[in-house]
Nucleic acid binder design. Structure first.
Length: 268
DNA sequence: CGCAGCGCCTGAAGGC
DNA sequence: TGCCTTCAGGCGCTGC
């Protein structure tokens, strides 16, 4: 499940490979989620950038090709035309390569829009600051969480206070910050801790090439390594690395959530 | 406008 | 062995 570290890993691999390449053929799976792929035909890719979990490629005609990988999406550049049941889009390049988007569960999304016009992608349209930007700090996070009464974890996953955090790195960040994900309010100090912990969790993911639980592979087809470095996510019923208490699992707004009842006590 | 609830998808895993 | 059910989950949409 690609979150910011996985998407950024792919972006770093694709940007030098795709910049300057003209698209000379395109196909999209016949569904509104993918059929926009053909709209990029004929344009030249100028770069591959990222906002949160969205890959954004500026085109030379003032539009942008946007790809969200969803749960099981992957992007690769191959030498041959794809022959695979789960390919949802491809773009033939002017150097003989082919950019292929594969997505078993079809939770991904492709769009071609006028640059910066994201009305068709409401989450992107209202996306918060990237976690490593100065615009994400204790003050902004505290303010954002003060305006809502939802569980803190649900707020992080909304992509509004900060962009790019999904279920895995959210559980990691709350564990690192020793904050209970079911809390609804943050102290100033808690906000500062959580900012640092979000960055630490995501940086670990980046350093280890992303987390591969089942499907994730980078643009070279390689799995990540961060699944061997997780402290909390997916470790319910195992002892907490810090205190030995058995980690617990629950559902929080329909999201599987793992936490340490001792290190991460409920506030209030 | 905020948000709770639901639907989208399909392979893997578990139950019997 | 094989059928059936449940689970995973990011995001868009609907309706309160």
């Amino acid at each position: 499940m690609p979150e910011l570290p996985e998407v950024e890993t792919i972006r770093r691999q694709l940007a030098p490979r795709l910049a300057g390449r003209q698209i000379i053929g395109a196909w999209g799976f016949p569904s509104p989620k993918f059929s926009d792929a053909v709209e990029a035909n004929g344009a030249t890719i100028e770069d591959v950038t990222r906002r949160g979990k969205y890959l954004i490629s500026p085109l030379d005609d003032g539009r942008e090709l946007i790809v969200h990988l969803g749960m099981t999406g992957s992007l690769r550049v191959t030498d041959e035309s794809p022959d695979d049941l789960y390919v949802r889009a491809w773009w033939k390049l002017d150097d003989g390569g082919c950019l292929v988007f594969r997505d078993v569960r079809r939770f991904g999304r492709i769009a071609v829009v006028d640059a910066g016009s994201y009305a068709a992608l409401p989450t992107l349209d209202k996306l918060g600051p990237d976690p490593f930007d100065a615009g994400f700090n204790a003050g902004t996070l505290w303010q954002a969480c003060r305006r809502s009464d939802r569980h803190l974890k649900t707020q992080l996953l909304s992509q509004r206070p900060v962009a790019g955090v999904g279920n895995i790195y959210a559980d990691e960040a709350f564990w690192l910050a020793r904050i209970n994900p079911a809390d609804r309010t943050l102290t100033r100090r808690g906000a500062a801790l959580l900012v640092e912990s979000v960055r630490e969790a995501l940086q670990a993911g980046l350093d280890h090439g992303g987390t591969t639980l089942r499907d994730y592979v980078n643009a070279n087809g390689d799995s990540g390594d961060n699944q061997h470095h997780l402290h909390c996510y997916g470790r319910a019923d195992e002892p907490c690395e810090r205190c030995g208490t058995t980690l617990r699992r629950t559902q929080l707004d329909a999201r599987t959530t793992t936490w340490c009842p001792s290190c991460q006590p409920r506030r209030r």
